[in-house]
Amino acid sequence: MLSVHSLVKTFSVDGSELRAVDDLSFDVPCKEVYGLLGPNGAGKTTTLRMILGLLDADAGYAEVDGIQTAEDPIAVKSRLGFVSASDGVYPWLSVREMLLYFADLYAVDPHVAAERAEHLSKMMGIEKLLERRAGSLSTGQRQRVTLVRGLIHDPPVMLLDEPTRGLDVVGVQTIFEYIEHLRDAGKSVVVCTHRLDEAERLCDRFGLLHHGRLQNEGSMDELREQTHREHLVDMFVDLMKTEAA
C-alpha cells in the first residue's frame, strides 16, 4: 500500500550540504504497523513530509496506493491520514464542526461524514465533546480529536509522527488502542518515534534510521539476529558507538 523508493533529500546548512534522507527505501503492506525509528535528526519527519508531498525529493519517490506523490499529490493526500504531536485544532470551531469541515475538504459525502464522525467519536470516547469548542479541550482531549480527524476520510495509509509526545499514561494507552484499530481495519501504518520502548509494543516491523540511512530492517526477531541485541535501545546505542569510534 505504501512504497518508498530510494528517497534522497539534502539541505544547505551553514554553507555545507546535509543529507537528511539518504537513499531510503521501504514498503508497508496492509495490516502492518511499521516503525520508522531513530534519534532526533535521523530523518524521520523529513521522510514523512516527502511522502505527504510537502517536500520535494531530490531523488527517488514515494508511492501510495499505486500513485506517486510527485505525479498526483492531491490524489495521494486523499489516501493518507496524518497525526502528529502538534494537534493543530481550530479553537473557535466545535469538535463536530471541525470534523465535518475536514471531511468536506476530502470531498466526503455529508451524510457519510456525519455517520463517520459519530462512529469514530464513540470509538475514541469523545462523543460528549462534539459540541464543545476545540479551544476549550485538554491536551489529551485534543489528541483524541486529532486521531478522529485523521480517519474522517477513511484513508488506507496512516502516518503518525511522534504521536505519544507530551501525553500521560492514559493518553499513551489511547494511542496504542488507536493503532490496534488501524491494524484491524486493514490500514498500512507508519509510526515515527524515538520512544523505542513504546515502538517495541506497537510495531510489526522496524526500520532503524540513522543519519538518513536505513541501517537495519525487519521484525524484532530479525533485528535481534542481525544485531545480536535484545532491545531496540541497545541496537541504537551500538550504532552511535560505531559512529563515534
Rank of each mutant, 00 (worst) to 15 (best):
S3R: 15
V189W: 01
L55W: 01
V157K: 12
L232Y: 00
S3E: 15
F102E: 01
S84Q: 08
L129A: 06
D161T: 13
E118Q: 14
S86H: 12
I51L: 00
D184R: 14
L232F: 05
E131S: 13
V89E: 07
D14K: 15
V191G: 02
G218F: 00
R201E: 14
R201W: 07
D14T: 11
H210G: 06
L54C: 08
Q141T: 13
D27M: 03
I179R: 07
L55S: 10
R142Q: 13
N216C: 10
V8T: 14
D65H: 10
L151Y: 03
A185K: 14
V170Q: 15
R183L: 01
M235F: 00
C30H: 13
A185S: 14
I179S: 03
T227I: 09
D161K: 06
L18R: 11
A245I: 12
V190N: 03
D22K: 12
P73D: 10
R19H: 04
L130Y: 05
V33Y: 03
H210S: 12
Y106C: 04
D23Y: 02
R224E: 10
H231Y: 12
G166P: 06
A70P: 09
M98E: 14
H181K: 12
D56Q: 15
D56G: 15
K128G: 08
K44M: 02
I175Y: 04
T164K: 08
T227D: 04
L208Q: 10
C30Y: 09
K122L: 12
Y106S: 00
G43S: 05
T45I: 06
H5K: 14
D184G: 11
A185E: 15
H5F: 06
G66P: 08
P91D: 13
G15P: 11
M50L: 07
R195W: 05
L182C: 12
H153G: 07
T242H: 13
E225Q: 14
V189D: 01
F82E: 10
